[in-house]
Amino acid sequence: MQLQKLLKVVFGAIMISLFTGCAGGTYKLAYRMETNQRLKYKTSMNVQNSMEMQGREMTSGSDAVSVLRLEVEEVGKDGNVTFVYALDSLNVTATTPQGDQIFENPEGMIGKRTRQIMTAAGKKLKSVVVDSVQLPGLLAQSGGRRPAFSFIELAEKEVKAGDSWTASTADTNAQTGGQIIVAANTTYTIAGEVDTLGYKCLRIIYSGKITLTGNGVNMGMNFSIEGEGPNNGTAYFTPKEGMLVAVVGTSDLETTIALTGQMSMTIPQSTASKVAIVLVK
């Protein structure tokens, strides 16, 4: 369960903000992509997890480095963007109570594509699995899921330095015998301009809250999940090229997992994560 969350944080929390060009210090934000355009991001993620079962605290941690490849298939007249994404590489070092594990480019995950359609403002309209994934060892045993990410929704109106906007998302993730809803409410603020990695970037501070609810039946046991926590960070975006250059962020989730059936258990879990995303191509 904790690794499932790890994956969710590793991939789900990859927030890519893309903005269109500006005039007179104001920016009209929209995704501006071209058919056949390719982007690559290197993502580094550190996750520290602690859960308490039967009065004993168990801690685990992981460091994951991945390269995500994104290819635009089509940009519609309405501005909707269809793209596929997949991992080019993934290296995970995990420390768990069961021992340490290293995953280097697991065959069942690399290059496995997902197709997504979103509006010009970044609202996800559809997500379709193209290639099925096979999770390796510990990830599979702990109920891990396929990698997934979403773009954030952008402001609909023109914005300038100091302006804020709020975006709310709710993703329903199907689980074996149930579902988990991950909802995020995030406020973005343009904090200024800064040169980053050779680009003239907008520095966009974000802060918000993630909530997690879900339930289902797995192996004859009912499970319920409830949690929440802050999600904060800074995104660096070049309005001229309309690309995200970097993101640095943290999130801290306090979650309760409840099991009923042949065994009753209430498990508190804390997950602290740090993420850094850098445009590499």
Partner: peptide, 18 residues
Amino acid sequence: RGFPWPSLYEGIPDDALP
């Protein structure tokens, strides 16, 4: 964090008490 008492959470059933 303490102990997540089900009675304090909407989505956590009482019979999850260990």
